[in-house]
Write a protein that binds this DNA or RNA. Structure first.
Lengths: 93, 93
DNA sequence: TTTATATATTATAACATCATAATATTATAA
DNA sequence: TTATAATATTATGATGTTATAATATATAAA
């Protein structure tokens, strides 16, 4: 029927199925950011921020770069980038 | 930062975050189908099929049309259609 | 080397999801 | 009007997710 990998793709969607993580990805696309930046931007706890970033990392959406004591996260995934672009174009219904 | 509605959009992704539902949407895009067709195509139980279709319906991705004893489901949501098209184009990483 | 900063991990409890099984509803046919 | 087919709903138990709190690790500065 289709060449879509349903399992792999649904894992991407699962990672994006939380409003905080969706906002994180959108924020990380604009600016490369460390965890503290994300905490300040989104107004969530440090622990929650690290855990959500970890989920995004494990699904391959984001990757970390260490700089001293800071960790900067960048969006990695082509599909995710294109989906976010789509979201910005479409006024969802 | 962006005009994305994170809550609403994350609900769409949540509905698509299950491989069975993702396959359902892909199938329903090709053919308008009743529940039995979905059951046969995906090889899942009738109950599971109805429940997954119900989740897709509640998230606004799909809508039902009753014909006698049958219910035909069609994909409704512009964002979802465009995402599926995107998936078919991209060899996900 | 102690201290402070940045981040990660673990534990916990409330809550949601999933597949399966059982039952209910609804519409048509006999 | 009873029987059948198609679909929906409910119940249950296992598993996963979430936010929060507490603790751990790692780097750099003093």
């Amino acid at each position: 029927m289709s060449k879509i990998d349903y399992i792999k793709t649904s894992e991407i969607f699962k990672a994006l199925s939380n409003p905080i993580r969706l906002q994180m990805v959108d924020f990380l696309l604009d600016d490369e950011c460390c965890v503290t930046d994300v905490v300040n931007e989104l107004g969530i706890s440090q622990s929650a921020s690290s855990q959500h970033l970890s989920i995004l990392k494990n699904s391959g959406i984001v990757y970390p770069e260490k700089h001293g004591t800071r960790t900067c996260y960048k969006v990695n995934n082509k599909l995710t980038k294109e989906i976010i672009n789509l979201l910005k174009k479409i006024n969802n219904d």
